[in-house]
Design a protein around this nucleic acid. Structure first.
Lengths: 242, 242
DNA sequence: CTAGGTCTCGAACACCGTACCAGATCCTAG
DNA sequence: CTAGGATCTGGTACGGTGTTCGAGACCTAG
């Protein structure tokens, strides 16, 4: 009567019909993303993920080789969220590339834990979703007048800039998130006094209003736009001289 | 006689003079970097690091609050390796910024595990070494004719591009490193067949010679240079129209 | 009814970051 | 020279991690 205590499942508690879990790879991946969005990277453990799926931790290993593979799948899923450039927009390739950049950046902002997971990004680079993006954008750029190799360069240049800035922003936003306002003010003050030996940095910091410091989004948006425009200017110039 | 076995240190084995460890923060940080360079991120544990320093694992906590703080120190140390732009080079700001970009990229290539540690990069952004870099480069750019705010934008645009591309490259190089040649060929073949549904990507892949695939460095160098030049073109144009 | 594939999951292993605290060592004041 | 406080080391222990292994539950085909 006492000892078995869970090893024995009575008729009543045993699932009436097939409650065999219907655990699927897609389900695992999307629950992982939900967990990451809600609680960030350090909350993603196989055990916690399994708990959310009401399954045993080690059951996941049937559907997914290991944690790294799971993360690669997660990354490709996120790539699926970015707006695929339409090759028909070749006439306005510049607007199309700008839209693409904005879409990638928005994705990173939506899922800022991506910052912690970048080392898996390459293995995911052969995932189906990224490949679709590459196909469309390179096609668009060749139609706009770039040869194949240069089209790829343009694409990866824009991607690099976008990724770089989005990551920096996301890292900053992550940091703000896990820092309460009091300590945040303390840190900023510390930075301010540390800047006293550096006149230009000090002047720069001083030029920011409280509103700008409190809500960095507007500044970030404008800065991103500025750099992207400069980059596209440079690329456009290159196309003109052909 | 038997049991104590190490708890008892005889006069002979006990350190003759003060062998008090001379453990310092600098030592810890530089040993951490050595370990990271040699074995990558997953080899950096407090225990392994302590072993290399011939000290107890928990002794490190006297000098460093926790692992995150250690990593922030490591990152600032690496910032110390990048060549600081000379504000005197304002006349040739373009060459100076290019040198800066190359220096950052070289640093990331030298320490490719940085990819796995990017989420700590912000907290390190108030470190002394990065601040020096910012001071010098923003000064240089203001002397070149940009106003303060735009100088910062230029700086962070160039940084974003450089960081983005260097990270992507480093992630790829990391992946190549931990993949033996047989499996590497298998993966590339898989990518190739996956690309069959995507004609342009397929054509692009096919256009690469074996030599280019085997040694990606030349291609990476050229691609980086291309994007950086386009970006600087765009920025220069902006300065001219003033 | 049985055999074999598919899938779940508990137990266990090695490793991790780090809180706690006892003790060793050093420095300084008296 | 001694006493006592500050500085620094490191053993123990706790709660967590990813992952392997293997025992079994379930489903389907014959």
């Amino acid at each position: 009567m006492p000892a078995s205590d869970g090893a024995f499942t009575s008729v009543w508690s045993r699932p009436a019909r097939s409650e065999r879990s219907t655990l699927t790879r897609e389900q695992i991946v999307s629950e992982a993303i939900a967990l990451l969005d809600a609680q960030g990277i350090e909350a993603l453990s196989m055990r916690k993920l399994a708990a959310r799926l009401k399954s045993g931790a080690t059951s996941l290993y049937w559907h997914v080789a290991n944690r790294d593979e799971l993360i690669q799948l997660v990354i490709d899923q996120i790539y699926g969220e970015v707006e695929i450039p339409d090759p028909g927009d070749a006439a306005d390739w510049r607007a199309a590339m700008s839209r693409f950049g904005h879409s990638v950046r928005a994705g990173v902002h939506r899922h800022p834990w991506l910052v912690s997971v970048l080392d898996n990004i390459v293995a995911a680079s052969m995932g189906p979703n990224l490949m679709k993006i590459t196909e469309s954008s390179v096609t668009l750029l060749t139609r706009a007048g770039f040869d194949l190799r240069e089209a790829e360069r343009v694409m990866s240049t824009v991607s690099a800039y976008t990724l770089g800035i989005a990551i920096s922003e996301a890292a900053y936003l992550n940091w703000m998130d896990r820092t309460d306002e009091a300590q945040l003010r303390a840190e900023l003050k510390a930075a301010m006094t540390a800047a006293e030996d550096h006149p230009i940095v000090h002047e720069l910091y001083s030029s920011y209003s409280d509103a700008e410091v409190l809500d960095v989004h507007k500044t970030m948006d404008a800065d991103f736009e500025y750099g992207l425009e400069r980059l596209l200017d440079g690329i456009a110039a290159r196309l003109d001289q052909k």
